[in-house]
Simulated assay, not measured.
Amino acid sequence: MDFRLTGDQRALKDGTRELLGRLWPAAALREAVNRDAADRDAADRDAVHRDAVDRAGLRELWRALGDAGFFALRVPEESGGLGLGTAEAALVFEEAGRALLPGPLVATHLAAGTVPGAASGERVVTRVDGGLVTWLDAADQVLGGAPAGAVALRSVDPLTPLHRVPDPPSGSSSGALAGSSIGSGPASGYHPVAALLTAAEQLGSAGRTTETAVRYAKEREQFGRPVGAFQAVKHLCAGMLVRTEIARSAVYAAAVTGDAAEIAGAKLLADDAAVRNARDCLQVHGGMGFTWEADVHLHLKRAWVRALMRPVAAEAEEIQAETLGTDASR
């Protein structure tokens, strides 16, 4: 099986990066984050959640993404979509993670074939995932119905409002989504495509922090030499690259095979790469990395939140263990 990207896939990836560079440049990200911080100081928490969609400029951004076909990537051409596959969607979501694009991207993308207005970006859709709901008050529709007893949380990520909902009754499938091109979720209840695309976002973030760390290590001088010339910094950057490429191989392979166990493994590796790379990037930046002005902390906070999306590390490890046990018994 050939896992190398085709010319069309490389063009899609490059085009997506260019598009997001125009729709969501670094200046727009920083403006949204700073506006969020000001609003949190001036407003009560419920009010902050209610107008989250407007503060992040999500409506305008969502419509622009809809016009570009972002949400309709896997919708059949006869239904007005682009008719691409899960592998292509993973490439696009990798770029979204790299740019720290806000909002319930995965849920709206998965709803594009069934929820009117989702494919065009006219409707923002979210879903219950492991007891957590992102952008609940900002969404036009919650898959499975609005959860009862949802409690607003103070999210560590300034651009990802969170609610916690009570666990569904035993045997409930409210967290599942219909229409998966890969199939239904495994016994753990997570949705394979959602997990794969979340892993792709984590991969994009891991790649971005690696690039950021290497660039800073070349520019920042200490004792008359770039800090990248010191062995300790070289080791940090090399470790970041290794984690990124291992996660990339796992995510790309899982996107092609569609195997639920491989997707769980890809999510595990991508979560680890995103979180640890952001931490190492912060270390390469030294004291500057801890400041609000640096964007490093935004990647770390978003990676923490995505790691809470199912399957979480413990679930992914159990799935891998069960798969290895089954294979060994054959």
Results as ranks from 00 to 15, higher is better:
21 G>C: 00
5 L>I: 05
56 A>T: 12
100 L>C: 01
186 P>V: 03
62 W>F: 11
286 G>W: 08
42 A>W: 05
272 D>G: 13
210 T>Y: 12
254 A>Q: 13
254 A>H: 06
243 R>V: 06
297 H>W: 03
307 A>H: 14
102 P>D: 01
43 A>N: 14
51 D>Y: 12
72 A>N: 04
77 E>H: 06
253 A>G: 09
27 A>D: 15
145 G>Y: 13
99 A>P: 12
129 D>H: 14
88 E>Y: 07
2 D>R: 15
218 K>T: 07
156 V>A: 13
270 A>E: 11
113 G>A: 03
42 A>L: 15
261 A>I: 01
172 S>L: 06
240 M>A: 10
233 V>G: 02
19 L>C: 12
202 Q>P: 00
317 E>F: 00
275 V>G: 12
2 D>F: 14
305 V>R: 06
244 T>K: 13
157 D>Q: 05
199 A>K: 06
246 I>M: 08
109 H>Y: 04
15 G>A: 06
157 D>V: 02
12 L>I: 13
314 A>D: 15
62 W>H: 09
307 A>F: 01
134 T>M: 13
300 L>D: 06
268 L>N: 01
184 S>I: 01
174 S>T: 14
140 D>L: 03
136 L>K: 08
14 D>T: 09
146 A>R: 15
285 H>V: 04
176 A>N: 01
137 D>I: 02
203 L>A: 02
257 T>G: 02
99 A>E: 07
49 H>Q: 14
108 T>L: 03
117 G>Q: 11
135 W>A: 02
199 A>S: 10
52 A>Q: 12
252 Y>T: 07
58 L>V: 08
31 E>Q: 13
250 A>H: 04
168 P>I: 05
28 A>T: 11
313 A>R: 15
36 D>V: 10
320 Q>H: 02
135 W>V: 03
169 P>Q: 06
126 T>R: 05
118 A>D: 05
28 A>V: 11
123 R>H: 02
66 G>Y: 09
90 A>Q: 10
202 Q>S: 14
262 E>S: 09
237 C>E: 11
292 W>K: 15
287 G>C: 05
24 W>T: 04
58 L>Q: 12
283 Q>W: 03
34 N>Q: 15
9 Q>F: 00
235 H>V: 14
138 A>Q: 13
51 D>Q: 11
156 V>M: 11
114 T>Y: 01
318 E>S: 15
288 M>A: 15
